[in-house]
Every structure is written in C-alpha cells, then in structure tokens.
Design a protein around this nucleic acid. Sequence first.
DNA 1: AATGAATGAGCCTTCATTCAT
DNA 2: GATGAATGAAGGCTCATTCAT
Lengths: 207, 207, 207, 207
Amino acid sequence: MTVAVSEQTRERLLSAAREVFSECGFQGATVREICRRAGANVAAVNYHFGSKDGLLAEALHFESLKLLQDTNASADACPEVRLNLFIRDFMHMLLDENSTSSQCKIMARELADPTPALDQIVREAIAPLHEYLANLVNEIVGDGMSETELHRCVHSITGQCLYYHHSHPVLQRLHPELRYDGKEIDAIAKHIADFSLHGLKFFAKSA
Amino acid sequence: MTVAVSEQTRERLLSAAREVFSECGFQGATVREICRRAGANVAAVNYHFGSKDGLLAEALHFESLKLLQDTNASADACPEVRLNLFIRDFMHMLLDENSTSSQCKIMARELADPTPALDQIVREAIAPLHEYLANLVNEIVGDGMSETELHRCVHSITGQCLYYHHSHPVLQRLHPELRYDGKEIDAIAKHIADFSLHGLKFFAKSA
Amino acid sequence: MTVAVSEQTRERLLSAAREVFSECGFQGATVREICRRAGANVAAVNYHFGSKDGLLAEALHFESLKLLQDTNASADACPEVRLNLFIRDFMHMLLDENSTSSQCKIMARELADPTPALDQIVREAIAPLHEYLANLVNEIVGDGMSETELHRCVHSITGQCLYYHHSHPVLQRLHPELRYDGKEIDAIAKHIADFSLHGLKFFAKSA
Amino acid sequence: MTVAVSEQTRERLLSAAREVFSECGFQGATVREICRRAGANVAAVNYHFGSKDGLLAEALHFESLKLLQDTNASADACPEVRLNLFIRDFMHMLLDENSTSSQCKIMARELADPTPALDQIVREAIAPLHEYLANLVNEIVGDGMSETELHRCVHSITGQCLYYHHSHPVLQRLHPELRYDGKEIDAIAKHIADFSLHGLKFFAKSA
DNA sequence: AATGAATGAGCCTTCATTCAT
DNA sequence: GATGAATGAAGGCTCATTCAT
C-alpha cells in the first residue's frame, strides 16, 4: 500500500502542527516553525491546507478520540473503576511530556485559548468526551439528577483534570519540587478520582 | 481631591489594558487597540509604562487582593461557611461580566498563557490565594494531611472554579442555554462548594 | 552561467546597502531606503540577511581585499615604489566617486562610527592591510625599529590617507576649488608618499 | 554678577550637549539623554534652542579655540618647537578622556560625521586651526611652496592626529595593549611631530 | 506538484517635537 | 517662564500569504 509523497508531507505537516499548536497555542505558533519541523517548504501549509486556519481545522480533526477507545476497553468494569481509569488515562495524555498523542493537549489548549476552529473541536472531540463522562456520572449517582446538575458534576471533574495541565507554569512556581513523572501523574489521577467520587456522593444522596 | 492629568490617562490605559488583555491574551492584545480604547496616542503606553511588558506588569499589580479582603470579613464564621463565601465571591469576580474588577479574569488569562509577568502575579496574587485556601482546607479536614495532599485539595477546588471561566467559550457551545447571570453564578458556586466539601471528607476520614 | 533569481536581489540589496551605508553611516541608513534603491520589498532585507546588522556584516564581508591583490602584483619592485603604488591605489579606491567598489568607503565609515560588525571588519580587512603596510615600512626603515614605533609609522601613513576621505565635506568647505579627479588623486597620493618616505627617514636614521 | 536661573539651565544644557554629541555623534545623541544629564526637562531643549539642530549650532559655537590660545602662549619659540607643542596639546585634548574640554572631540566628530552645522564649525573652529598650522608650516618650510602643497602638508599633520582619535575603536582591536594615558599621548605626539618635521623637509628642499 | 523568493500589513518601540497648564 | 504630558512619524522586524517558476 504505497502512499503518495504529497500525502507524506501532509501527514508530517499535521503532526508538526499538532506539536507546535499544543506547545505555543494557535497565535503563538508560526507557519515557519511548523514547516521547519515537518521538513517542508514555507509555502507547503498554504499549498496543502489553504491557510493557517485550514491547517488548524485539519490538525484538530481526530478520526476518533483515542482516549475513549482506550477507556471503552474496560466497559464491563463498574463505573467507579471506569472513572478511575478514565481520569488516569486522561491525565497521562494531558501531562506526560513523552506522550506521542497530542490530542488531549491540543484540546486543552483550545479550551483556554479558543480559535476559529472551536465549533468543530467542541463537536468532534469535547462533546463526546463530555457525554462519556456524563453517562459515567449518571451510572454512579443514579438517575435522580437534573441535567444541569449532571453537567456541573462533569465540569467539576474536567476542571480538576485540566487545571494541572493549563496551570502547569503556575504550579511549577508555586511548588518548585513538582515533577510530572509517571508516578506523580498516577497519584494526581488517584486524588482527583477520590475527591470526585466523594463529591458525587452528595448528589447521589440528595437524589 | 484633585487627580493629576497624567494620572487619569494612566488609569484609562490600565483599565483598557486589563480589558484587552483579558479578552485577547497578552500576545493577542495590541498596544494600538489598548490606546484606542483609552483614547490615547500609540506612544502613550511606552511613555507611561516603558513597554507593553511594563504595562502588563502594572495591570497585574494589585494593591492587595480585594477578594481576600472581602472574604476575610467573615473570619469568625466556621470554615465550611467561609469556603462557601470564598467560592461565591471568587466565581462572581471570575464570571460576572459587569464586574468592574477584571483582576481575576486577567489573572486567569495569565494562567493559560504565561508571560514574563507570571512570576510577579504568582507571588502577589496567586500564592496568597492558594495559602488562604490551604488554611481553610486544613481547618476543614484537620491536621492529619500531608502537604502534598493539602495542595492537591486546593487544586481541586481552584480547578473547578477556573474551569467555568477559561472554558466559557466551550461551555457556551456545549450548553447554549447557559448564561452567567447572578443566580446562575450563585448556583454554580454552591455546586462547587458542595462537591468540594464532600470531596474533602474523603481526606478527613482517611486522616 | 546563470544566476538564481534570489542571487540577483541579494546582490542588488548588498549594492544598495553599501551605497547607503557609506553615505549615511549605519545608524543613519534605513532599511526602507536600501530596499527602495534595490527595488525590493521592506521585508527583503530580513528575508535575505536576517536583520539590518546581518546585512551590514554581509556588506562588509570581502572575499579578499582587492586592494592588496592589486599591489601585490608589483611585488618585485623596491619597497619605496611599492609604497607609492599602494598609496595611489588606496587613495583611488577611497576617493574616486566612480569607483564601483565602495569597499574602502564603507570601511572608512566604519572607522568613524563603529558598529557591531567592527570586529569582523578589523579582522578581515583592516588587520591584513595594516600588516601589509607594516612589512613595507620595515623593509624601508630596516629592522632596528620597535614594534610600537613601527605601528605608529603605519598609523601616520594610514591617517593621512583616510583624512582625505572622511574629512571630504570639511575640505570642500575649506578649499572650494578642490575636486577629486584622477589627476588630483594622483597628486595627493604622491604627496602622502613623499611626505611619508621622508618622515620614515627619521626612524631609519635613529635605528 | 548674578546669573538668571534660565541662564544656568542653558549652560548646563550646552555642556551636556557637547558631552553627548562628542560621545555619540549628532544622530546618536538623543534630546532626552542630554536633558537628563543637564537635569532639565525634556522640553527644555526646544524651549531654549528651538530644536535639536539649534542646540547643536549653539553647542558648536566656541568663543575662541582654547587650543590656539594655549599654543599662542609660546609664540616666541622657534616654529619646530611650536609645532611640537601644538601637536602635544591637540592630542591631549583629543585623546585624554578626562579632558574637560570637549571642543576638539566634538570637532573631530563633526569631521567624520557632518551635520547641518558643518559650515559654521568649519568657519569658526577648523579654518582658524588650519590657518595657524599653515603659518607654522610656512615658517618651517620657507616661502617657496605652492598654496596647494602647503594645504597638503597641513592635512598630513592633521590627518595623523585625528586618526588616533576617530579610529580609536579600531586601534583598540588591532593593538589591545594600547592605552591612552598621559605618557602614551606624549609619545604619540612626539612621534607625529618627528615624522612630520622630517616629512616637511622634503618640501623645504624642493622649494 | 511543489518550492524558494518576495510581499505588505501590522507589530512594538523610539524620537524630536508640541501642547496645556 | 518652564514643565510634565502627549503626539505622530518613522524605525526595525515578524508573519501569513502569494507569486513565478
């Protein structure tokens, strides 16, 4: 199964774009840097994607959220365990610097610094994630919850997770000893899961 | 009490800067736009603040965190109530569009997109806030908690709060009916407080 | 022998830069004026040379000092004759307005108003020139001279030559009838050579 | 004899201007820096002198060349001695960093980097100096010299002297051990005088 | 199909100058 | 009379984009 040379350049550009976008944000990223990393010409972005915006739209387009595939693997476990697993996977993708997948990082970036492609990414990536979590919370808490409260619970979980990612520069200054190695990430994930599961109990009781 | 002419321009510039910085981020904000809104010349920023960086530093410089003054007023209440009050005040400053003080908004911006002024803002604004919360959590949970766990609990609370601010554009798309009016903000604050107080119980129990 | 398109623009920019730099000095020269004369866009300088400084460095970079090649041609003549020839060639490059090479002019500019590129130009252009003259003087005077005196003699010669170039505006006002045509330049060169050869005699005698 | 406050400011401005102009050249000097050193308001220059050009014109206006007053004191010595003295005084004013008088320095600056005030400075400062030297040379050489040759001899002397001033940055790189202390300046002056007096002999003989 | 060269709008900043007091 | 505040033109530079090949 041969792949056209142009197809290879496209893929290298997309990969480089995801990298740079997740590092620098959309505004901070430059077409030149992306092309440099992709080993392509400066004009390549506009040639292949029409514009920087076009490249972003394409770079944000994920066939399916790898995160959900992973966690769906454990679909038969109880919801509490699945929440634990989800948070652990999410945090690893978010914080592990060696993580090859920049899907979650670029998604988190988009949250904090929206781009023209926000509609798309909400639709394709964030909404499914939110929905997955909402189902999980529903299973844990029981059906007696209002839609609004359900959403807020999901936000409470998501907010905790993203905080470690997007406030990393702040946390580094606040706690200079902090390092995001595998063990630390696991511990953080465990904390968030514990904190959240007990937080959810309040809503379960009140239902 | 007369105010020097230059003082007026300075203030207009600072106000416009906080507005634009919180809307567009530091990189996205342009000196021209800030001066336009302040009704001043392009050179005014450099005259009064030396540079765009200097303006940011000044714009981020808060005499004292108004937020903490407010909540300190209720120093004699029990810690649970004080956490409720703190979160409510924090969320109002963060979300209320009519809030004259954009302190928290620009601070949240800074979290997501660090600038050279980050050291200053962490020192002057975020660290005191974190410390205040840490003390509160400590009172609620009891002393049996490790420093690390204490910090993580604070992060869980802060993360939930900030999420509603910095992910506003996403939440709007996710839940188009969402409006941040006074009642909604109160409800969100209440949710975060309830969720967090129950989350904290896990750590109290384990202590 | 075809030349790349970009090579042409580069050369036009370098040529224009040498022109403007030698007319206005480094500070006085503007990138816009250089680009205007080169028929190029304002951004061309930064594209081809990275910065105004980079353009200067390139403009000052001489493959080899043409001046020394010329005078080396007469290597078998006696040192007095070679000094005459050197000064004549030097003065022509310095003063002849029709000289296509502005190497010496821009070099003389750099003397009077140093830029970050001064180190380079001293190394590449001035030091070899100084050394060439020092050898010549040594041959003329004999070996009995101290290094310091040798240098001073070279400076006496160089100083006389450069004076006519860099003080041209002054000399024009002092002697309005002065014109730097070929004959006048020859006469000046002859004067400097005569003056210097007799000046050197003092040091030969004292050796 | 009381002096108006405004007169004092004027003088401080002129003094600061001479300092800065001689250090940075006309283009490189900024009105702000001059006013800062003079302890005056930014607007003071324009208030007192109309413009930066006006300040320059005034700053270059010397009641009389102090240099010539000094050397005229020895009017009864033989011309060779007077040339020695003149060169020594000139070099000290040109090179001694502690010299309070910036007359010669600013004059040398003007040679290398002409300003709109060049006409004036040539008329008031350079022409008298040139004439003084021409008379001296005439006395030394005898009357048989053409005007043109006479001028060239003066240029040979002046050129040697100025070289050490305006090429200082180059000489420092060429001979890193070079320092312009009192002894060195005396030695340089002696060299130039010796070199020149012997150079002049050629023209005396040919007359 | 793909690239190196070139573009022009826009950025922050500096500066001599002017204005209102 | 003298100043701090304010101005606008111009500077070097960056960037996404387009053009000619």
